[in-house]
């Protein structure tokens, strides 16, 4: 089985490069002129208010949707211009989780984690089960291995989704709202898992979220989108954006102040 190109590229190439991307549906443009790089081993957070196009941007980055203009390079190769076979190869090199976890409802948790290994490798069944259980252990889900997805809570679904995304040894993980709707303890556990995976395995993370605590805890760098200007309005280290950004919209977001930042909001 051919190894996805992402890991075969020189280590100096950014893991993901977004080049002048224009994202939208039909004639409705959500975002234009978006350009940024994600370096290997980096945790980049895409943030912004609800409806600003965070998840749409990610879906364009992983090749689910075709952008209106611009390009996305995965390990130096364009996923936008790639043919179906090349695109599938590039996508296999990405570990992707969706907002709902997107586990297959007819398979147990263990079978869900094993699914990509069943499809793309020739590893023996007993060994695949061990790999799946070790991945589940990593996300603290090993006890739930025999349960069906319908029996899991939202947080468990998301953690199992992360384990499945890692099964093929993806070096780039793309997580869509991983901690949305989770209780603080579960969300903190998830953040800890993300940091541990990056530190231990050197994985690259692109995380779409608007959970402030999570952003400040895990992100090396953040890219902030704005629905009104339909563009990236800030890029940098989250704590610096919070404390030193010149853009009122960025300060509003980080300081949770819906009104103009000059106006003190009574709570």
């Amino acid at each position: 089985m051919e190894r996805p190109a992402v890991s075969a590229q020189a280590q100096t190439t950014p893991a993901v490069s977004v080049r002048d991307l224009k994202v939208g549906y039909g004639s409705r443009v959500l975002l234009e002129g978006a350009s940024f790089d994600v370096q290997r081993g980096e945790i980049l957070v895409i943030l912004g208010a609800s409806g600003c196009g965070k998840s749409s941007l990610m879906k364009n980055m992983i090749g689910l949707y075709r952008p209106m203009a611009g390009d996305v390079l995965i390990g130096g190769e364009s996923i936008v211009r790639a043919g179906p076979t090349e695109k599938a190869r590039l996508q296999r090199g990405l570990g992707i989780t969706y907002q709902s976890g997107a586990l297959f409802g007819s398979l147990t948790v263990l079978e869900n984690i094993r699914f990509p290994l069943d499809e793309f490798t020739d590893i023996g069944l007993e060994q695949k089960n061990l790999i799946a259980r070790m991945l589940l252990h990593q996300v603290e889900m090993v006890e739930a291995q025999s349960r069906m997805p319908a029996e899991l809570s939202g947080g468990m679904l998301k953690r199992a989704g992360i384990a499945r995304a890692m099964a093929l040894g993806a070096e780039i993980l793309m997580l869509d709202e991983p901690s949305a709707g989770l209780d603080p303890i579960t969300a903190a556990n998830l953040d800890r898992t993300i940091l541990a995976l990056r530190d231990n395995l050197g994985l690259t993370f692109v995380v779409v979220t608007h959970e402030l605590q999570s952003i400040l805890k895990v992100a090396d760098r953040a890219v902030m989108l704005d629905a009104t200007s339909r563009s990236i309005i800030a890029e940098g280290v989250p704590s610096e954006l919070r404390d030193h950004s010149q853009d009122a919209r960025v300060r509003q977001f980080f300081n949770r102040r819906p009104d103009a930042p000059e106006t003190e909001v009574r709570r």
Binding site: R3, S7, T121, D122, I123, Q127, L168, G169
Partner: peptide, 11 residues
């Protein structure tokens, strides 16, 4: 490198 795509026969 020992990766998912290569590990089957090695194992």
């Amino acid at each position: 490198r020992v990766t998912a795509y290569l590990v089957g026969p090695i194992w």
